[in-house]
Write a protein that binds this DNA or RNA. Structure first.
Lengths: 203, 203
DNA sequence: ATCCCTCTCGGTCGATCGTCCAGGTCGGTC
DNA sequence: GACCGACCTGGACGATCGACCGAGAGGGAT
């Protein structure tokens, strides 16, 4: 009767189940029992696979942020149409993100809740900072791939502004769910970011 | 032995205590027992003063958001130096906000956590939307007081962008606590917002 | 066949949660 | 002095939480 599974597989099963539960019902409702029920494994399997609840959450954060990073990298690579205007490219990226957000709002809300949980939990405090740091680096890398664009301010500052805008767009949309208004704001945001670029130089 | 107090006073005592506990330890730790202990009131007084836990949280959200609004109104009124450049005024307001944020980070974190809690709790879902709606209106009002400034896009859209920027600045700072970087980003944000103003007309 | 290590699972622990209630104390009104 | 309604409280309820234990099942190595 017993399901025999390699330990690593059970761990992945639990992490995935935890993400689904957190997305659907929030971190507060993601108890060990709710997660194991979602994963269809006995409650006792939880503490066999993980030393503690927070160890699981740590892995969950790792998994979610890695997923975010992969999506962002893919989006940047797809949207590297060098012939298009800079502002157009930025706006297209933001609109693409809003599509993802509107399609899977629970995912982004889960990420925010996890960050808040991490900041309140001893041993996980650094996770939020690390996530933003890697976001900055990713954005700066994306800026660097736009060959031939000079910036009037350091690219690192542009990258931070971009993340700030993305973050603000997210939290604001999550609160009022007004996609049309968010797209209008995205238009302004794209114009703002592009405004810090000097005219393109010939390559 | 019994402390005799008007009911309304006990209510206010509990609301204030709840805000302190939430700011210090987060919503998750703000149990009825933690709150009543903070308020130095017997546990049983809790359900004498409030029908339920969520009724208290509702009042807490009301109190916190009203406090935010009052601060914002005061800041706008103080910072209405008509002789200064628009970008300077905006930047000064943002820097002022960053001062408040750096001085009382728990307060802003508490607000964000309360919004997340409200969105997950039946009966409180609208609170987050209402808060952002009033923030937009407040920002738009602040823009309107700058007589003689014409905007190249509707003020309502500028107002939304301003709130998005403020929100992004907040969440980002709360994650990495890098005040210097936040001030640099604020500089870019102020320049962006001011960039949507047409040249000032003579009045 | 024997051993051993990995894996599984039901049951239960103590702590903490929000909520409730019966009874008690007070100040004011007849 | 009798009464009443507003105010206050200790103690308990059932539910749920993270964590833990010991007995057993399974499969490969010897």
């Amino acid at each position: 009767m017993a399901q025999r599974r390699p330990l690593a597989e059970t761990r992945q099963l639990l992490v995935d189940a935890a993400i689904r539960v957190i997305a659907r019902q929030g971190v507060a409702s993601a108890s060990t029992r709710a997660i194991t029920a979602e994963a269809r494994v006995p409650l006792s399997a939880f503490h066999y696979a993980f030393d503690s609840y927070d160890h699981l959450i740590d892995r969950v954060i790792e998994s979610v942020t890695e997923g975010e990073r992969a999506i962002a990298v893919a989006a940047v690579e797809i949207d590297s149409d060098v012939d298009a205007d800079l502002e157009t490219v930025v706006l297209r990226a933001l609109d693409l993100y809003l599509d993802v957000l509107a399609a899977h709002p629970d995912q982004q809300q889960a990420l925010l809740e996890l960050m808040a949980y991490a900041q309140r939990t001893p041993g996980l405090e650094g996770r939020a900072r690390d996530y933003y740091a890697s976001s900055f680096a990713l954005a700066e890398g994306a800026l660097a791939t736009r060959a031939g664009v000079e910036w009037t301010v350091p690219p690192a500052e542009i990258a931070r502004l971009a993340i700030v805008l993305l973050d603000g767009l997210t939290t604001t949309w999550l609160a009022d769910r007004d996609t049309e208004a968010a797209r209008r704001t995205a238009r302004l945001a794209a114009a703002s970011l592009a405004g810090f670029a000097a005219q393109r130089v010939q390559v």
